[in-house]
Simulated scan of single mutants.
Amino acid sequence: MNKLCINFGRLWLFMLMVGAMSCSKSTITVEIQVEDTSGLKPDSVYIVGNTPELGNWNPAITLMEKVDDYYVFTLEMKKEESIEFKFTLGDWAKEGMIENGDGGNIVLSPKTDTSVVFSVKSWHRPEPTSTAVGNVFQWNVADPKGELAPRKLHIYLPKNYERDSTATYPVLYMMDGQNLFDERFSTSMGEWGIDEYLESDTASKVIVVGVENSVNRMEEYMDYVKGKPFREWLAHFIFPKVDSAFRTDTNRRFVGGSSAGGALAYMMRREYGRSGRNRVDGVLCFSPALYVNTEEDQYSIFLADELESRPYPRVPIYFDIGGKGVDRILLEGTEMLKKHYPENSSASPVYKYVVDLNDDHNETAWRKRFPAALEWLLANDRN
């Protein structure tokens, strides 16, 4: 268990801060204490987590305030929500190791105004043992136009790929690719285990290309205008690069992702659905961030265009949602999309919609749902 304690000497300050906030919300003050054994005494500490306020797992966005010997961050959140987070010095290589912690994400689900303190014993992320299985490797890639940050592709090739020199394979491009195969690269709640599934005897054979995110993840994945260079880079540079290097079936090219990555897959379907050499033949949208309407945030990802368009693009779409955490907010968007797809109609796209209200917005849930989603897509992309 993580070390939790109340700092009574500072409690009065905390109460003053939360007193002016709405009683309908809980406020959490996350306070970190760096132990002297680290010997580092950093000038800047970042809190990194699963919400926009926490930087969406970007290790160098949300700077904590230095107050005396503490680093403090305060946010408002609804009582029924939970947050997951870690601390860094601005780089995942300098991740804070919590006293008595196991190296995993810190999870808080406060019901009332709360102040907690975590002690960090060191600022070093231990090198985890590789969890990848099968033929998994990385490529370093850049944008020829220089508009996007360099990043890695995490690539999986099917079993016996080298032995069977004539076979061609469908390709699935997954966003947040660092989280797919190997704990060494994962920046979130572990990896999806896609390689473990594809190495099993029951899985279909497919090439998977995981595209790492960048510090501009939200802009690249969710901003329709500012994200256009990323979508063009994916379609006009990465697709051909992969096709030229591997034996791909260019008529079976899929894009997938979760959360903001699911929104990106959704937009790729609208822009490149079965059109030209850069076509997209199907998409997997896990807990897609299509629509949010809350007091704090309002946005819609291409949804109005989808709902007004007839006919729908004949590109299979799998989309799903859980019922806990962030998925409780995103559920409205997936339900809106489902209502506008007529049942048993030639005007409707081929689609599958899955709801599991027991699932949260994390890799554990997406890992569980991935096998059935992939097999459905591979069975329906030619319809």
Rank of each mutant, 00 (worst) to 15 (best):
N140H: 06
Q178A: 11
A132Q: 10
D182S: 09
E147P: 00
A167L: 06
H154S: 14
Y169P: 05
L148Q: 04
Q178P: 10
F137Q: 01
F185G: 10
V133N: 04
M174L: 15
K152C: 11
T166A: 06
D164W: 00
P150N: 07
L180F: 01
D143C: 01
S130E: 06
E147A: 08
F181L: 01
T131L: 02
L148W: 03
S122H: 02
N160E: 15
T168C: 01
Y156E: 06
T166Q: 08
F185T: 15
G146F: 05
L157V: 12
H124S: 01
P144N: 07
V141F: 08
Q178L: 10
G134K: 12
P158M: 04
L180N: 03
D176Y: 01
F185W: 14
R184L: 00
G177L: 06
V136M: 13
G134I: 11
Y173F: 15
N135V: 08
T129G: 04
P150H: 10
T131Q: 07
N135T: 13
Y169A: 09
Q178F: 10
P170W: 07
K145W: 00
N135F: 11
W139F: 13
E162N: 10
P144Q: 05
M175K: 02
V120T: 09
F137E: 03
D143L: 02
V171A: 13
Y156L: 11
K152P: 04
Y161Q: 05
Q178I: 14
P158F: 07
K145D: 10
F137Y: 15
L153V: 12
W123L: 01
R151Q: 14
M175N: 06
L172D: 10
F185K: 04
V141Q: 08
Y173E: 08
P150L: 06
P170M: 08
Y161S: 06
Q138T: 12
P144C: 03
E162R: 08
Y156K: 02
K145G: 01
I155A: 03
E162F: 11
A132T: 07
P150G: 10
A132D: 04
S122D: 11
E147Y: 02
H154V: 08
T166W: 02
M174E: 14
F181R: 00
V136K: 07
S119H: 14
S130V: 05
Y173L: 07
